[in-house]
Design a protein around this nucleic acid. Structure first.
Lengths: 322, 322
DNA sequence: TCGCTGTGTTCAATCGGTTTAACAAATAAT
DNA sequence: ATTATTTGTTAAACCGATTGAACACAGCGA
């Protein structure tokens, strides 16, 4: 036994009409008003009886729209991307789209492949979050070539002329954070930097530090589970800043945990501030100090922009900053 | 200007051959070996030049396979489901499938609708995680009717005759947890129960308690952000157990945080054990005691089972316990 | 009685591929 | 020289929908 698809022709046969009639009726097209009431009812009844599900594949082929968006993320195992994805999912849903999610594990070849597949699947547009978090230049070329073909694509936190993107404006939050730390007497602030977090954050942080006459000390964070604890082992020695800004909340939590493990207190010995304001930061103690990033707002803007581009084939690249 | 799709016919025209030739060549079909080498090369060259992306929509229509799986979850804003989804995404990817993700916000109508849409999109199969977490009986009927039509569907932690499912075997972990708490002298263990977590966990816990002669005390957890803290306010009064088993890690963390907020220590005043062993439980202090649930294993099994069912139209419902 | 309008429905092309059968030309076998 | 086989390619049906044009028939006015 197999799962047999019920098609529009099955209904037509059973109802003794042409499949075009069925199509008109089921889609409540204007022309369907001319069709006899009892024919209409018969069609509906049979469709329901046979448990008919119209094939969006066939429909898409004809209409050229799949009502599908692609979401390319590095992965959703971290709170930040989980929230992002969740919001994007709901946003797409509200606008009548489905979301095809691809996790690239931050690997460029995987990303290129994911995008290629989304194009093959005729996704109406793509939201790509990876480039905004990776310093590698390879991304740029990929995005440009796709946009050149006038295919709707919105980049996350990756601003560049000729590309559509939504960007987070960290400057206000950074400013507050730095002022807060400066107010506690810190003149040097360390920050943890790792490959997959970059673009806006570092630039913004450095300029804010400059403005407040604070020395920013960079710590390279290895891209593995021990990245943070290695940094911690280093900074508990003399000569390092006692205030840190960590570029995402999960790492901030790890840093606090790590500091506690080696007998330091937060706050007290160290002051740590994170960025993102993820939802379950709330069950962390001590309460996480964090720079609020309006993830929901940003994600919604991304989906809105993409849908807008899809709706208007004459779209021009556009930049949205939240 | 619009994004114009390059089709197989465009290539055919440019190469001066029939589109069937192009199809044979590009897909490296056996018959293509008969086609002149230079014709083949010309076709490849033109396809590359025009930046051709074969339409999987058209292909799916013909082959009847979309190479798409549906994943229905309540939402992925919690760590547990984020990890689940992430693993499922990668598992699907490894097997050549794409994942269409639907978040139902734990709402039954949304779930029914999500499934309906996945059927319309001709997803080759569906993994549904919602029923395993909700006590409502409505789910059952939905799942049964779909399975009756022999459509491949795997349920998460929702065991029932005639349905395919993967279930977590909590008994070993529960046993350890209860023994651990009993070893610390507890004779009563409280547990937090809320609507969206149920099926295996409670049953398993109660039977383990019975075996160890421990009294299990149930606390209903409201389904809102304050659910846990309300319970905490109750249990700090006299007469309540000092040991608790919380059915998921995020709630366990919340409970610990909440207890600290009212001046209680963990461990010390209270012993808390969670279930799930989510990845970023690791940056929580005090270190979370948790019952390990092999999420990755379970998710992979679900995807495997589904793919197996898709591959063999004669599949019988099957139950996998991990 | 001829055309006209409106009603109820169907025909046939189309979307972008895949696949099987068929066919022409070249080569090999007899 | 004739048939058989191989080589290189195409024609056409098909997947499951949508849609504009067309058609048959009714009733109606002139």
């Amino acid at each position: 036994m197999r799962h047999d698809r019920v098609t529009i022709s099955d209904i037509a046969r059973e109802a003794g009409v042409d499949k075009s009639t069925v199509s008109l009726v089921l889609n409540r097209k204007p022309l369907a008003s001319r069709i006899r009431r009892d024919t209409r009812q018969r069609v509906f009844a049979i469709a329901r009886k046979l448990n008919y599900h119209p094939s969006l594949v066939a429909k898409s082929l004809f209409t050229g729209k799949t009502m599908t968006l692609g979401l390319v993320v590095g992965g959703i195992e971290t709170p930040f991307f989980a929230e992002l994805t969740n919001t994007a999912l709901e946003a797409a849903d509200e606008r009548g789209y489905h979301m095809l999610v691809s996790a690239t594990r931050w690997d460029f070849e995987r990303e290129r492949n994911a995008i290629r597949l989304l194009l093959q699947r005729q996704a109406d547009g793509i939201i790509c979050t990876v480039g905004g978090l990776c310093p590698q230049g390879e991304h740029h070329e990929l995005y440009t070539s796709i946009t050149k073909q006038h295919y709707p694509m919105v980049l996350w936190d990756y601003q560049s002329d000729g590309l559509s993107s939504v960007c987070s404006d960290y400057s206000v939050g950074m400013d507050e954070a730095v002022k807060l730390l400066a107010g506690k007497g810190h003149v040097r602030i360390g920050y943890c930097f790792h490959g997959i977090q970059w673009n806006g954050k570092e630039k913004s942080f450095l300029s804010v530090c400059g403005r407040h006459n604070i020395e920013a000390v960079k710590y390279l964070q290895e891209d593995n589970p021990h990245g943070i604890s290695k940094i911690v082992r280093k900074i508990i020695k003399p000569g390092h800043p006692k205030a840190f800004l960590v570029f995402d909340d999960s790492s901030a939590m790890e840093m606090i945990a790590s500091l506690k493990d080696v007998g330091r207190s937060v706050p007290g010995d160290f002051d740590i501030i994170g960025i993102d304001d993820i939802a379950w930061g709330t069950s962390y103690r001590p309460r996480l100090t964090t720079i609020r990033q309006d993830l929901k707002q940003l994600t919604n803007s991304a989906v809105d922009l993409l849908v807008e581009m899809i709706g208007n084939p004459e779209w021009e690249p556009k930049n949205i900053s939240v």
